[in-house]
Design a binder for these strands. Sequence first.
DNA 1: AGGCGAATGTGATACTATAACAAAGGACCG
DNA 2: CGGTCCTTTGTTATAGTATCACATTCGCCT
Lengths: 174, 174
Amino acid sequence: MAPFAPTADPCPSCDAPDLAFAQHDHGRCQSDALSRAEGLVTARGLRLTPVRRRVLEILLESHRAMGAYDVLNRLVAEGFGNQPPVAYRALDFLEEQGLAHRIRRLNAFTACMHPGEAHAPAFLICHRCNAVAEAPASALRLALNAAADQVGFTVEGSNIEAVGQCAACRGQAA
Amino acid sequence: MAPFAPTADPCPSCDAPDLAFAQHDHGRCQSDALSRAEGLVTARGLRLTPVRRRVLEILLESHRAMGAYDVLNRLVAEGFGNQPPVAYRALDFLEEQGLAHRIRRLNAFTACMHPGEAHAPAFLICHRCNAVAEAPASALRLALNAAADQVGFTVEGSNIEAVGQCAACRGQAA
DNA sequence: AGGCGAATGTGATACTATAACAAAGGACCG
DNA sequence: CGGTCCTTTGTTATAGTATCACATTCGCCT
């Protein structure tokens, strides 16, 4: 996995990891992520082509995870190719570049909320509002690596996902 | 999620969490898990029917994860029903009863190596030998719950999976 | 024996993902 | 400018994973 060079831009999600679950200026959230993404991609000598950019925009519309076929339907409606590989390729690219994450529990994808920072977050998935937040996971990674070390296992990649209820939804339920 | 009543039997995997990656008396490993499973299921007033039992046995043959259709093929060969629901129902039952785990990263299932103990382990998946081990994850759970608590999120279920190389395979590679 | 709920068998279908190849677009170099 | 090469996209086809719905059977209880 290629390390991501840190950027100078502030990352709103870092100060508020619960952003996904709370009211916030989503327009800014969205455009921030998009401009950060463009910077990163070009800095790496790659291209944020129309399909790729559009897919990222679609994912950025909400803090939820979308299935590849949901994304594909959107693309079709906008005149892009209408076969699965079109969506999967863009999604795979975004994931490789750390601009999107795959949520295995949902067979779905979500935009990365702080691209450019080396991270492999834990995901918190609210099963009521379907929002997905990235929780800071450095302590988790340490614990995981420690557990793996104990048995001589070398971790190369991992996914940590939790389902439950966010604060807002729990409030409503009560 | 129903809590699992602890049993009096010793659990070899607890003393050796790296069992899956090491040489061991697999016959004992297997029969242990099976008898523990039977005890648990009947204690709960449920039935370990032929299909369910056979599926568990199949999963127990190795410390690897099997796809539902791999399991199904085995069942077909032994005269059970040959449609997906046959396998999925048994697998779902085993998972609900804590006798098997779903490895989301692999879209596959693996037998639980210490059924009866309340646990939601972290999985270590070796991409060379395909073995899957359950790592003790209490520290991990704590870290995950702490991270979730910080944003007011209540964790109801989670999956923690790591891919990498086990000690034996890393030795061979060198 | 009859009734009842759980479990299984079966056909059909939905959903997720990838392989393979053709065609188009861009960058580079002469 | 034209040619070459590599990347990206379009498209057909197919593989792999999972669930629905309904009929039937099984185990248990009375």
